[in-house]
Design a protein around this nucleic acid. Structure first.
Lengths: 254, 254
DNA sequence: CGTAACCTTGATTAAGATCAATTCTCGTGG
DNA sequence: CCACGAGAATTGATCTTAATCAAGGTTACG
């Protein structure tokens, strides 16, 4: 089973699923494919690291990717967790066009896969910049993407600076629970089946990564899970979280 | 001295100083002026608050403005401090065009003036959106603005989550010192004069605001200033900071 | 010169990190 | 099928940082 043989060839249909490219024509997508490449990554594989010379922006096709910073002592803080069809590492493209052209741009953050069989698309920045000059409509998509990201970051900062860990965890669980319900409804709609309803969901990331995302460490996370459990808001069993009191959880988390 | 009489009329020259509008034609600037308004604010005056219905984006013309979040207990965290000619509150414009059109957008953060005689320009979002459809070149400016902001926020998160207060303060002082040197050089160039060289600068914001920006409180900030002073890195006298050991300060701050 | 806003300093407390020791879980190979 | 070991998660004891509470001191300004 040679991996290289299995590696599928990217098509314009793959690109079309990416929000950023959703309005482009077949011809435009083919153009983008011509300066893009495809990469597979196992759990923990680094896609790029902070201050590494910039090549281009990435897009998750399969699996998930964490964007994180590391302190001098090796402590990690996960700023973003990217899911399929979202782009990342675009900031340098727009921050300074000159720097990209002159190969002076660098990645502003670390990125690593957090799942096995993660697949990403890598779009080379320089040809993309000239592409964009002729296809300005894509600018609006980027503006929307970056604006949403800014809002997420704002909320992230708010959480870290103004709420304690219990609240942050409660908020994470509440939001992840709502997301899981949405995803489930999506599947039911797409496959026209009815899934059995449940108040449980699986944590999509490891507890280690969750701690690093909430700005804490795994021991504290463990204790905080227990506190929420002791208050009968949730039940924790491995990665399975059962929401016992959604109303209270929501109230508490905001 | 009636304030309304003194209030000067905005001209296209005022707009031209704003990076965002720097490439626009006289005609385009006049158009923008037609749906913009001018506002004066004293120290502490609120420009908009979190979740308030969205009207449009702002730009500092004079003075400075803080963007901040507040916790349930009233603790404040300053995410950004905006200086003249920088825009803020643009995120809702791009985050969802529909929400803006349907008057469903809200401001994502609080904004207040932190100086007396602050002046801001307020650009109405709806007419601006249609303006932008015909002037897509301005998109690139916005992309650049938002990208830079994302980078700043990333660094802000990094500081808050991975560095202790002493390091954060050292970094702030180092950067502010470098800024003050740049500003001074700028003035020398513009006015063709030679200012006497110095290792001092004035804190551009109150210590209260600085604490809220560094993610701490004023008592801790005071103690941290003292620590840096005891280590002979800086000297503090009111708002005047003298850098005694720039090399060490830089080394320590990163 | 009086008072309010701002800032500093000290004593105490609390949240969460660190260190250390188990326990749990799960995949692997005998 | 069980034993083993590695990585993940939990739990406890202790320590550190920074927040809180409380009291003075400075400065600026009418």
């Amino acid at each position: 089973m040679e991996k290289n043989i299995l590696q599928k060839k990217l098509t314009t249909d793959d690109l079309r699923k990416i929000h950023l490219f959703s309005d482009l024509t077949e011809e435009e997508l083919t153009k983008i494919l011509s300066f893009s490449r495809h990469k597979k990554a196992g759990k923990g594989d680094i896609l790029f690291f902070d201050t590494e010379p910039y090549f281009g922006f990435h897009c998750v096709l399969e699996g998930s990717v964490k964007l994180y910073k590391i302190s001098g002592e090796g402590r990690e803080h996960i700023v973003h967790i990217m899911c399929p069809y979202s782009t990342f590492g675009e900031v340098p493209v727009f921050e300074s066009f000159e720097d990209v052209i002159n190969d002076k741009a660098v990645y502003p953050i670390n990125a690593a896969s957090i799942e096995d069989d993660t697949e990403v698309l890598i779009v080379s920045a320089k040809p993309f910049l000239s592409f964009m000059k002729e296809n300005t409509s894509i600018c609006f998509k980027f503006l929307s993407t970056l604006s949403k990201r800014l809002k997420v970051l704002n909320n992230h900062i708010e959480g870290i600076t103004l709420h304690d860990i219990k609240r942050r965890l409660a908020k994470y669980i509440f939001e992840e629970f709502e997301n899981s319900k949405k995803r489930k409804a999506e599947i039911e709609r797409a496959k026209k089946i009815k899934l059995k309803s449940t108040d449980s969901f699986e944590l999509p990331i490891s507890k280690y990564d969750l701690a690093a995302h909430l700005g804490t460490i795994i021991e504290t996370l463990s204790r905080t899970f227990k506190k929420l459990q002791d208050e009968n808001l949730i039940d924790v069993s491995g990665k399975k979280i059962t929401v016992l009191d959604l109303k209270e959880l929501k109230k508490y988390s905001q």
